[in-house]
Design a protein around this nucleic acid. Sequence first.
DNA 1: ATTCAAAATGTTAACGCTAACATTTTGAAT
DNA 2: ATTCAAAATGTTAGCGTTAACATTTTGAAT
Lengths: 349, 349
Amino acid sequence: MPKKNPNKNNSVTLKEVAAELGVSAMTVSRAVNNSPNVDSKTKKRILEKAKKMGYTPNLVAKSLVSSKTYTVGVVIPEISHSFFPDVVRGIEEVVDSKAYQILLTNTSDNFEKEKKVIEALKAKRVDGMLISSSLMTDNFSYYKELIKSGMPIVFFDRCIENIGASCIKVNDQAASQQITEHLINLGYKKIGYLSGPKKVSIGKARFDGFNIAMIKNGLPVDDKLIIENGYNEKGGYDAMKKLLKLPAKDRPRAVVAVNDPVAFGAMDAIKDANLRIPEDIAIVGFTNDIRANLVTPPLTTVNQPAYELGKKAASKLIDTIQEKGDLVENVELITNLVVRESCGSLLYK
Amino acid sequence: MPKKNPNKNNSVTLKEVAAELGVSAMTVSRAVNNSPNVDSKTKKRILEKAKKMGYTPNLVAKSLVSSKTYTVGVVIPEISHSFFPDVVRGIEEVVDSKAYQILLTNTSDNFEKEKKVIEALKAKRVDGMLISSSLMTDNFSYYKELIKSGMPIVFFDRCIENIGASCIKVNDQAASQQITEHLINLGYKKIGYLSGPKKVSIGKARFDGFNIAMIKNGLPVDDKLIIENGYNEKGGYDAMKKLLKLPAKDRPRAVVAVNDPVAFGAMDAIKDANLRIPEDIAIVGFTNDIRANLVTPPLTTVNQPAYELGKKAASKLIDTIQEKGDLVENVELITNLVVRESCGSLLYK
DNA sequence: ATTCAAAATGTTAACGCTAACATTTTGAAT
DNA sequence: ATTCAAAATGTTAGCGTTAACATTTTGAAT
């Protein structure tokens, strides 16, 4: 068992390779970094010796010199469902191709934790951050300062717009309006809305879209039919339960959910109440979660290109880090309505 | 627009705070690190000034001194499906509670990329690594050297056992045997197997379990009914297609898939061939993917506690890093058979 | 007032690397 | 053989921090 000082790693340094060969550390540095002006024989000797000694460059030291870590922070509100993993896959792919890596952090939709992890990422001197924020709309100062400090930031999906950072997202409001109008066109009039917290960007945008659709079509927006809760299955289940407690005649005939997990939870609540989807209550979601076409009945939803969103956000961040192109940009990726069975229809009956 | 040198970050240093206050950098260091022997008034002055100046400690420099990064590398073969995101959630939770963060890397099940990312993680001087390896069973030397170098490693799910690193996984072989015997007990005799590459630990273990079950029950293992392919939906689809090309009388009456995604792909292939599950071909999986109870028919599978597996692996790694407890340990988490409808039954017909 | 240990603060060097500059070596042209 | 620019190699200092040791200040006990 090789003894070792617990606080010191025992890895080989440039200097040790240099000493072994009787050259200077600088020459070794040049050799391992493919710098010019190194004799090819010297280089060969050095690389061989370095390999034999198990030399691995110390990027911590290198970062201290260069002020670059080739690491980007990724801040997401949850890891498990299908949307964020797909986004992360897109991010990873782009970032890896540019020789960066990602420090992944999860905020559990908690702004205090969000601030905490961002401070940690700052301390670790990431070259930039990709953030899907759980931030309240009334507290931008934190991010304004972060951006002012020069940290490259790209928001994605849950954006804070127009405070100096780029934003990659989908046309939440328009898509939400579109799917609501789809229900309206199918003949539904009494439509409820299962919202996430409206202080989150997507919460507000999607709710606005719902409202616009209703108003534009002369339908009443009934506050009793709008329930705000979390962005996950449990949030949807509990919200729907509340709607179902209303007297039958007051209940919505159709429901728009802020995202698919909420819709799934709501569907469970509807089934638990022994009601049928869509015959008793129709429902639509937003995300096109991996489960959307598997639930019973399959969920009508808005397809959000998660993987592409991740790729685009990562490209934009790396461009920002490398100061290429227009620095600040708001990008809206295209969504499309995916009509399945959960929305049913009131026509031709 | 604040001008800045692209290669220098403009963050405030200890020394700058010190100069501003006319004290030494060391005193500032002590103040911000809560070291003893700092006058409480001095400390207060320093902390206030540091805050006002926007000081954030530079962990890169700190790491260079301490040889600790409070970062662990996580190496997984894919990001998108339900199993690994759940594992990562477990990892993140534990690691965060100990003030570590994770550098997440994706190998796409490619051993060359696996080596590449591990080299990058070494260069970044992570304090340890959590690895789910796509490694060939005949090439342990790479990992043996990595472990010998003193890098704390914990394998999870796809382990390389008994080469000096801990391993957290489920009882793959026994569980695979159990689910195969479940099929046998339901009356199936002609059973096929959709395998992942057997050079991956779980590939071999699960296949062994299948074989043991067959042999123990006096059933023939027919090589033509065993197809090896990838661990994902497409792998399962293509593998099943091959089985379906057999003359009807040679086809398996039931199929064991190495994991749920492979089972999902196979189910699509079966449906595309206009056959019924389980009436024409029964099928079982392994994982208890989030989709397993949603597909039609719901998939009989082995529940693998992904989140707990992630938590356990992370705890073990941090214990190893901090040199607590027995260093090397093989842990098998408990699985349970989840019987749904895809396995059907040949009994009482 | 003096003493002196404890508390507070300061100085130096080192972590591993590379930019910037300095020196030595090489080898083609005379 | 000498010259001298180009190529190869070396030296120094600094990135931001802290461990280890050095010095100064404090204040209770005399």
